[in-house]
Every structure is written in structure tokens, then in C-alpha cells.
Design a protein around this nucleic acid. Structure first.
Lengths: 216, 216
DNA sequence: GTTTGTGAAGGATTTCACAGCA
DNA sequence: TGCTGTGAAATCCTTCACAAAC
């Protein structure tokens, strides 16, 4: 686990590959499910079967963070779930704002999957003055000029971008400007952000466009 | 480009890595944009700047499929766009069906981003008898029992799953049963499908849950 | 001069395989 | 006996660097 830098000093903590971090939430999900089914122990093989992954990969992934299992037995389901939630910082709530209250933004704020996982959408914004002031799913839509103020006041840490492509980069710039470091982007572009900001894009058209390659 | 099998025979055509296939639509998108801005030539460096990728990676990716560029000049924008669309089979239309006409399904069928890219949603399905028969965005919602028939009749090649998690696997089984080979899945699970079926999942909660790892 | 296409090198990720522990 | 944790090996993917072409 320890590596040496070019200057001879030692890294005791290895940087965990991003692919590994992206898989951890999958493990959490299966563990939650297993737990609700009354199972208290799970093996890397059982986890792998659920997720279509090799047991070795799961054990390797977990080994970046510690030794959570017992040989001959497997992992304690709720203990491992707690550990992973803590590693991913899912043991607290995170506040989010949605920018762009068209059809997509409305679907996002009414999606019932965020809140149970601790992601609370506390504010909604739009550029269009016809929409500003409306009440959507219990949120009063605000003007984007209010963004920075609201981010501070409501301790918003996540920006969800659901504006059309032609306004996406300016909205992302505004989010960055307001101090947001994590952006979930639904607009079909590769946004320009500083290295300190993490953008994750969701783009169903890109998914379809690569699937067609494999189609008859 | 040629490799040798264990039996001594030769593979003349290398399998293109899936990561490469997933990047091709990004290139298509930038090329379309460049073209509409009146540029007729583009270099791997310019492409890389747009997409935050190295020029070498782009050239390597393209080299899996042929030699499209001219040394000292770059790539002809519209020629490369055509080539990539042809490789990805985007030079024809693809018909799709949406299963699950709740909020998410309604957002999907009304999303204006699919049709311009040649993805036509021709049918909508739901299990709920209260919804079956309704007209949503010009589509008459059908019972899932009609799925296989409609898939054949309308030449549907893509299934888009937007049902809640507790019905997702059965809907996916029904799609597989009806002969669908490509599924875009919005439900938060890792579906079980035969190797011959390609599933691509869109899961904003997973995205958020890995982003929190990097958050202060 | 510029930029491609591509072997070779380098780096990252996955899988293997087994010692060690319950 | 059963399953983890992990070095080593294997595989996969990216980047380098330069000859060749325009």
C-alpha cells in the first residue's frame, strides 16, 4: 500500500482509482438490499453474482480501504454497508439545487429516488422570467441571479444542470462562480470547469449512440 | 492490427475496445458542431480541446477504423462525421419503445433530444390499467401484454425501461423475450440479461453517490 | 512547417492463485 | 473446509515519439 515519491519520501495512502470509487455505490446498494432481506453475512462471490463482477475485483476494491471481511465467512452485511457509506460520505445529507425548470428539471425535482439516499433538492432556478416565481414540487423557482446567495444560505453542495445546451455552459460557470464543487450535468456537452470542480454527465443519447454499434 | 489465436490462425480484424466505441459519439457531436460553424477541417488537437482529451487518444481511436486524416492538415469535418456515423450505424433511424409511463417515462417520451438523432419512440407501455389507454405525447399507452406484438409490427430495436425498481427485472425479461437486444435502463438495479443483450443503465443516484467521495 | 498513423513504452486495471486465518 | 487479502501476472488502455505524408 505504500509507494515512494521521486524525492524519496513515502506515500502511506495510495490514491484510490476513480473506477473503484464509482463501483462502491453499487456495493452499498446490494448490501442494503441483502440487509433488508435479513441476511447478515455476504461473500465476495455473492456480491459478484448480483453485480455481474468477479469476486476478486470486489475484494481488491475493498482492500483499498481496509480489511472488512473474515476468512472462511465473508463480510458482515451491515458493518460493510456502514463502512462504505462512511467512506463515500453518505452518512450525512447533501443539499442540491436544480437549474433549469423545463420538463427535465421538473422530472428531476419530482424524482423520488434522491431524498431516501440523503440528497435533498432545496432550491430551483431558471433563466426564464415566466417560470421564475412558479411553485414546482414545493419549490419556488428563483432567478439565476439569486444562485450564489442561495448556495451560501442553504449550504448547497451539488448543482444539477437541466437547462438546454445553449445555456448550459453559462449556468455551469455560474455554479462554479458560486462555489459549487460537484455538478450533475444533464445537458449534452462536455463542460469546461476548473480541475477543482467535479462534473458528472448523464446523456441518454450518447448511450444510445454507442449501443447502435452493436446492433444488427 | 493482426493477432494470432492459440490454434495458430490469425485474427485480421481486432475487436475494438468498448471504451473506444463509447467515445465515438462524442467525436460525432463535436464534428457536427464544427460543421455547423462552417469549419471544413479539424485536427486531433482541436477535437481534443473540445473534449478534454489528448490528441493521441483521438488519433488512436480513429485508427481502429481506418485512415481518415491527411498529414499536415487534419480531418475533413463532414467526411469524418459521415464515416463515424456509418461505423456507429447512425446513418439510419432506430425505433424505440418506452416501458413505464410514470413521471420518468413521460419525461423520456417528451424529451426533444432523441428524434433529431434518429431515435424514434414509437410505442409506450405500462402495467397499470389506469394508465393504459391514455394518450401521452401522441402515443397511446399499451398494456405490456402487447409488447412482443408491437416490437415486431413496428420494428422496434430499443427498449427504454422507466418503471420502478420492483417491476424492472420483469419488464426487462419481457423485452428480452420479445427479441429486443438493446436496453436503456433507468431503474436502479443491475439487470440480469443474456450475453446477447446489451444494457446501458442511467442512474443519477449512483453518480451523486460517487461524487460525494470527493466532497469536502 | 504541420499533423497524421502507429509501433513501442508506460501506466492502469483486472485477474490469478495461494498463503493465512476463521 | 471456506473465504479473505494480496503480491504477482496478465491484460487492457493511454501516451509517447517519430517516420511519413501533405
Amino acid at each position: 500500500m505504500a509507494t515512494m515519491n521521486s524525492d524519496g519520501s513515502v506515500n502511506t495512502e495510495l490514491v484510490v482509482p476513480e473506477v473503484v470509487i464509482r463501483r462502491l455505490p453499487l456495493y452499498v446498494r446490494v448490501l442494503t438490499q441483502f440487509s433488508s432481506q435479513g441476511n447478515s453475512v455476504i461473500s465476495s462471490e455473492q456480491l459478484g453474482l448480483q453485480l455481474h463482477m468477479t469476486p476478486a475485483q470486489i475484494r481488491k476494491d475493498l482492500s483499498y480501504f481496509g480489511r472488512f471481511g473474515k476468512q472462511g465467512r465473508g463480510y458482515d452485511v451491515s458493518m460493510l454497508e456502514q463502512q462504505l457509506r462512511s467512506i463515500l460520505r453518505l452518512d450525512r445529507a447533501w443539499n442540491a439545487a436544480v437549474i433549469g425548470m423545463g420538463r427535465l428539471g421538473r422530472a428531476v425535482v419530482s424524482y423520488p429516488g434522491f431524498a431516501p439516499e440523503g440528497f435533498n433538492i432545496l432550491a430551483a432556478f431558471d433563466i426564464n422570467n415566466d417560470i421564475v416565481g412558479q411553485n414546482i414540487s414545493g419549490l419556488r423557482v428563483q432567478s439565476i441571479s439569486q444562485l450564489a446567495t442561495a448556495v451560501k444560505k442553504l449550504d448547497i453542495k451539488i448543482g444539477i444542470v437541466s437547462v438546454p445546451i445553449d445555456h448550459a455552459q453559462e449556468v455551469i460557470d455560474a455554479l462554479v462562480e458560486s462555489g459549487i464543487k460537484s455538478i450533475l450535468n444533464y445537458a449534452p456537452l462536455s463542460p469546461k470547469v476548473p480541475d477543482s470542480v467535479n462534473v458528472n454527465s448523464i446523456d441518454p443519447v450518447l448511450s444510445l449512440q454507442s449501443m447502435t454499434y452493436y446492433m444488427k
